[in-house]
Write a protein that binds this DNA or RNA. Structure first.
Lengths: 244, 244
DNA sequence: CGCGTAATTGAATCATTTCAAATATCGTGG
DNA sequence: CCACGATATTTGAAATGATTCAATTACGCG
């Protein structure tokens, strides 16, 4: 359990590199102690400087409040994700990350990142790769926006299911997603009224099970087929620095 | 001219750091010679390994072919942009970057990136910042997708206009954008038929001037107002490594 | 010159929103 | 522990933004 938890924390890195003992040691020595937060608590607003966290347990969401006041979810975060990365370059970020469930976080200090860039170039480069992966996710999501909301929903659920598989094994903790209809609407970019109809339809078709606040994936394969997406696969470029 | 061209090449970095002489020297010493390409030529398919280019002159576009065969433009690239970054982590990228006008490129070898990570940590970190900036752009674009195509078009034109100002000064080379209606449709995510109506409408309202293949921004301020966006402003985090 | 691709236009259709009103659920203070 | 208010869900019907279809015209290239 302790092992798998530690492994989950660096799972995103593991899809690109096999850390050396020295690298592992550095990652393990990251200073700071874990923080707990309850559902709905705001984890980072972006405004308070360079607040970075590694999500260890639980679910979080990163959202922006659009010009018109309504909210839009940029990303759903699972254990292993870095929180606060997306907008730390913005002079006045308008996004905030909040907990969807009870969460455990580990704060990452700026000094840690600096040290990583100065002494563990391969780890630093891998951070870049993870960032680029997120960017690729966004690009894909962008192209889904030309499709119907039905297919976008299928695509979203498929990608989440895939991640759950990676985190928790094939059963993916029975693929339970702690999202209310309102959240899903904000992810997909449709109104709550319409997402309700879509979720209802998906439920009828046996693709998901839904009950207030909990969405369970019932048929990942058919969701994939409906979305038209292929499985997500990343690969490290050949130029990665030598490990320390 | 020579100065401004060199400056343009690293403009993205300059919004985060003031390079030291050693850093400048390293950037200047990047091996490889410039490449020319004509409009519509494909610059990188992503598939041929880690092909990276710095765009020195001209315009390019990065596009994916969606499941349904139709094309979607992910990003419009201007001088100073890195081409091929967006998808180099994908095992089988489905995107390609092509020239919109005649372009000049400088290939960036993997070895150069590696050396940067190993010997110029601050430059490497800045690359990460630029990547995060692109990601933030995508997030914003995503939230625009909840709005009407009219406001999305305004937002797109506003952001491009802003970049042209930064590149070419307040007049922004008179804000000429080398895009055909079809391209704009692929950026905004609507059909060519509908983009035609929108462009016609914008033209009537004096927001733009359009003629086949060329779109000129006529009133950047009103485009901004219509989009509801604020000016784009980035800032470097405090943890950047010390320069070499 | 002729052919393929891009732009234009109008009309019908469809996906999604908006509006409105009822019901359910949750957290909170008394 | 209950009542209350705030917020989420549900449902139907009307309105709208955007697509699709179809047919015509313009342009660029070999």
């Amino acid at each position: 359990m302790a092992y798998s938890r530690e492994r989950r924390a660096i799972l995103r890195l593991l899809s690109f590199i096999h850390p050396t003992p020295a690298e592992i040691e550095f990652l393990r020595s990251v200073p700071g102690h874990e923080v707990q937060a309850k559902a709905n608590e705001i984890l980072c607003t972006g405004e308070e400087g360079d607040a970075l966290y590694l999500l260890l347990d639980g679910w979080a969401a990163n959202a922006v409040i659009s010009v018109d006041g309504d909210e839009r979810i940029n990303a759903i975060n699972l254990p292993g994700d870095m929180l606060g990365m997306a907008s730390f370059v913005m002079a006045s970020p308008f996004d905030r990350t909040y907990a969807l469930t009870a969460v455990t976080l580990r704060p990452i200090q700026g000094a840690t990142l600096r040290k990583m860039f100065e002494q563990f170039p391969r780890l630093a480069a891998t951070i870049l790769l993870v960032a680029q992966e997120e960017r690729a996710v966004k690009n894909e999501w962008n192209s889904l926006h030309a499709l119907t909301a039905e297919r976008r929903l299928a695509g979203f659920l498929f990608r989440i299911g895939e991640r759950l598989e990676k985190l928790d094994g094939p059963s993916g903790s029975r693929m339970v997603i702690p999202l209310r209809q309102k959240h899903v609407a904000e992810v997909i970019g449709v109104t709550p009224v319409y997402i309700h109809r879509l979720i209802h339809q998906f439920q009828q078709e046996g693709l998901i099970d839904y009950e207030r606040g909990t969405l369970r994936i019932a048929d990942l394969d058919r969701l994939q087929a409906l979305s038209g997406l292929t499985r997500w696969q990343v690969v490290a470029p050949r130029w990665l620095p030598e490990p320390v």
